[in-house]
């Protein structure tokens, strides 16, 4: 049986004066971890605001778990079921970690005792041990990010909206945060909408992805399907004499290219033509080490989705795996 989508949007339009933030969003977010990708100004934050009922749509409607944030009562009901981790620092100095989380728990509707118990439980979960009794002024970026995750979890919400959870984290902190998000989504069965600039973060933690470009959904689907094997391209490796094998393939009417790491990428008219590569190898005396269909990366899928959009500046699109690796490598 197909599960009811956790978030449903129909014809969602939002204008801020002359600026069109959303231009008709239609999407069904399945349960489980979902990544929300898009260049800066694509409308991701507006989308989150609409889901929380903080911003009212110009047209269309969005629903969370069947609730439409139209009336005040609905907005209140929705916010009880949603946990939001904002991108900005947003933590008040002067409070301790446990005070902040328990206070926000009480504001959500937990009793005093429950709020304190839950605060300790979620702070344990995010591994803020004795630091929970320290004033927030002394927290590192990693601790602040984990605290923000803890406050989003304190009332055990049905849906978690995580806005750039790995923002500003060092590689170790980032790994830790991703492991928490992955655990929540994959092991604890939490519904997560993860907004991130980092495609590898989404690839690691989410099962589905939605790409928003210029206020429209450019692409959505499961990562497995979107990056499914492109059977027209195969990766071939031979034991030795790769250059000669390349010439032999060209002579057979194929167009091989050197793969970024090792071997050749061969574009074949049909998947069945992979047999032709084997025949060329056998007839010319080359020993094939491997022949695999090439899978698209999320990066390629994303670039394909935003193709045609005016993404001129590097900073205005999500960070690609190669760029991200250059930053995070020690």
């Amino acid at each position: 049986m197909t599960q009811e989508p956790i978030v449903r949007m129909r014809g969602l339009v939002k204008h801020f004066g002359d600026v069109q933030a959303l231009r008709g969003i239609d999407m069904d977010l399945p349960r489980g971890p979902v990544g929300l990708l898009g260049p800066n100004g694509a409308g991701k934050t507006t989308l989150i605001g609409l889901l929380l009922g903080l911003v009212e749509p110009t047209e269309g409607e969005a629903s969370i778990a069947g609730l439409v944030p139209k009336s005040r009562a609905d907005r209140i009901a929705i916010r009880k079921r949603v946990g939001y981790m904002p991108e900005s620092d947003c933590l008040l100095p002067g409070m301790t970690g446990v005070e902040l989380v328990s206070t926000l728990g009480k504001l959500t509707g937990l009793s005093r005792e429950d709020a304190m118990t839950r605060a300790h439980e979620v702070l344990d979960y995010v591994e803020l041990e004795e630091a929970r009794y320290r004033p927030l002024d002394g927290y590192s970026t990693g601790m602040k990010q984990r605290l923000k995750l803890a406050q989003a979890l304190v009332h055990d919400p049905e849906l978690l909206l995580l806005d750039e959870p790995t923002n500003g984290l060092d590689p170790k902190g980032r790994r830790h945060m991703l492991s928490l998000v992955e655990d929540l989504g994959r092991n604890q069965g939490k519904n997560i909408l993860l907004c991130s600039h980092l495609l590898p973060d989404v690839e690691k933690t989410c099962d589905h992805v939605v790409v928003v470009v210029k206020g429209r959904v450019a692409l959505q689907g499961s990562i497995a399907e979107l990056t499914a094997a492109d059977e027209a391209r195969v990766h071939v490796e031979v034991e030795e004499r790769q250059d000669e094998f390349e010439i032999a393939l060209r002579a057979a009417g194929m167009s091989p290219e050197k793969a970024p790491t090792k071997g050749l990428i061969v574009t074949v008219p049909d998947a069945d033509d992979a047999d032709a590569i084997c025949e060329v190898a056998a007839s010319s005396g080359f020993h094939l080490r491997g022949i695999d269909p090439v899978r698209s990366t999320l990066e390629q899928v994303f670039l394909k989705a935003v193709d045609g959009a005016d993404v001129s500046a590097t900073g205005s699109r999500p960070m690609l795996a190669s760029e991200e690796a250059a930053i995070t490598s020690p």
Binding site: L52, R79, V82, Y84, S88, L107, T108, G109
Partner: peptide, 8 residues
């Protein structure tokens, strides 16, 4: 953002 994301 933390306050108004709650039923407040």
């Amino acid at each position: 953002l933390l306050y108004f994301a709650r039923p407040l």
